[in-house]
Design a protein around this nucleic acid. Structure first.
Lengths: 350, 350
DNA sequence: CTGAAAGCGCTTACAG
DNA sequence: CTGAAAGCGCTTACAG
């Protein structure tokens, strides 16, 4: 037999209405201002007062209304995530990471995909940020690389963090993913296997990540004394189809490279398709390496060696910097470095 | 030479503050209540008054503050999307669809992934809905199949829509995806190619979609006079790894089926891996068909014939039903039926 | 069809 | 350390 405990909040609960700051003030015998101080973690409250009020809050299950708070603060408790990256897994991981940081913080995540090639997109983000009085915005590549976007946000006093492969703003606003390091690791790995004739299929050089991955690879090779000839570098579009087209150029020329490093997994899948169709065995006759460590990497056959990015961590840090600015420096200093996941798509050249 | 036009809103603009309903009322010489009526599309406003006020709004770029409106309405302008589906592309498409419906509506999308197997998850959704005073919630499979979740939302008077493969709630709350039809189409297709010994790798039967796809297939076969023996049906977990395990059971038995229908593309990729490794040629020696038409389908080699779901449309309709209840019936009547996308992974049996 | 008053649930600015 | 008053930008309930 259970005894139904009569809680101090049963009036509000019974009437079906959520309790407000006034209820808490009345029930704990303090002014609403004191309750407000407690909600906002003000140090100007005596410990026993705080304890008493917090007990009441717990008992009635009080949580402050974000809209009322937002109205008074002139700022909402919403974090916007702005992105135009077409890769689903990347977006979802970034969202999960942001939500990791936002969990139990009172902030919520509002998603805002956009098309950074369309002319009005900056205005769209501005309306979004201003109308919702966003607490902050996470800028995900490639949108994060658009200086005009960042300038607009600074202009309307909307705080933001930028995720990018290289620093391009104040440290307190940057989460740097160091794509260059991942590409260098690929170069070292392939050189270590004995490859010297390695081709590159790069992403569009209008993307900073593509530049970083390309340069990181080429420089790491150079540092070991191996030059990558221009003809071995084919620029593609980060898409499967563009990977197919690039592979066709590379695999049916006079001399076939013994390995191909692709700027992402999508394009590596394109190389797989061309190689399979042409009867070129991976990895025996051709080593292939991707970038992203997307789900695709382990589902392809043979499974694809690829560079893992810590996308979820990246998202978590970018969001945390928005809601805990004081921790920003420590967080941004935390190095998120990609690293190689070795699977079955590379071996020493024949 | 451009003449800078002095707009009626230049005072507010110059002071850097967004204009409010009071500014609009003052500038157009009406009461704020009339402005409010116009914001809320009330018919109780004379047309010329409305036109005049709307002109002022446009001129100063006014848009009402959602937090102030929400506070007064006791309801926010946020739509929650609750899901526990691990497939990234599905989630992202669903989000895009919802955003299609929400665009320029004043509503925003707040994402809320959860784990429907964890005990406290319903409480988590409740807190989310109550604290944010959500305008409505979209329930995505498999969370949408949890009656206790739907009951809780009804209990707290939070409107919701459920996306599922079969109706399990009032029509005004359902978006039905008819997975059964897609599976039946696969059966017809494989029978048409001449297959009779077809195996199934199904999703977990705790998922309604898995039941629907399995039953849809088996019944369509039966209607053409072909029985599917029990031993030809292997239950797996909708994951790549579970697909691998199931394929190993099916492909190395006494008699190999000539075709396998997989409950999703992930598991089909698992079949590919096992077949490739064992030197079983797809589609010559084994036809394989998936479900989802995920990006994976076209990236595998040979490209995978699969059932396309109209996920983005589904998301759009589910969101539209929340913000335009009057259109709900018409929308839910709109049939979203999956259909087969034929690629290269099936051919007549040898 | 239009408006003045009161209120939504908080915080800021000021006072003590 | 604590509180009474005014205000954030809207809408509801009531009146005309």
């Amino acid at each position: 037999m259970t005894v139904r405990r009569k809680s101090a909040g049963s009036d509000a609960a019974a009437s079906g209405k959520a309790s407000t700051i006034n209820d808490i003030a009345r029930l704990s015998g303090v002014s609403k201002k004191t309750v407000s101080r407690i909600i906002n973690d003000s140090p100007l409250v005596r410990k026993d007062t705080r304890d008493r009020v917090e007990a009441v809050m717990r008992e009635v299950g009080y949580s402050p209304d974000p809209m009322a708070r937002g109205l008074a603060f002139r700022k909402s408790f919403l974090i916007g995530m702005v992105y135009d990256n077409p890769t689903a897994q990347y977006i979802v991981n970034m969202q999960y990471g942001a939500l990791d940081a936002l969990r139990d913080s009172g902030f919520e995540l509002v998603v805002h995909p956009c098309d950074s090639r369309s002319p009005g997109y900056i205005d769209g983000v501005r309306r979004f940020a201003q109308q919702q009085k966003l607490h902050g915005v996470m800028l995900v590549p490639r949108a994060s690389e658009d200086q005009a976007l960042a300038d607009m946000l600074a202009d309307i006093d909307c705080r933001y963090t930028r995720i990018a492969s290289v620093a391009m703003d104040e440290p307190s606003r940057m989460v740097v993913t160091h794509d260059r390091n991942g590409a260098a690791e690929v170069a070292d790995y392939l050189l270590g296997l004995g490859h010297t004739d390695i081709a590159l299929i790069t992403g569009p050089q209008a993307y900073r990540s593509a530049i970083e991955r390309t340069q990181g690879f080429i420089e790491a090779m150079a540092s070991k004394g191996v030059q990558v000839p221009k003809a071995r570098v084919v620029e593609a579009g980060y898409t499967f189809e563009s990977g197919v087209a690039a592979a066709e150029k590379l695999l049916f020329g006079k001399q076939r490279p013994t390995a191909i490093f692709c700027g992402n997994d999508e394009m590596a899948a394109g190389v797989y398709k061309v190689a399979m169709r042409a009867g070129i065995a991976i990895p025996r006759q051709l080593s292939v390496i991707g970038f992203d460590d997307s789900p695709l990497a382990s589902r392809l056959w043979p499974s694809l060696t690829s560079v893992r990015r810590h996308t979820r961590d990246t998202g978590r840090i970018a969001a945390a910097m928005l809601i805990q600015p004081e921790a920003a420096v420590a967080l941004s200093a935390a190095s998120i470095r990609p690293h190689l996941i070795i699977r079955d798509s590379a071996q020493p050249p024949e």
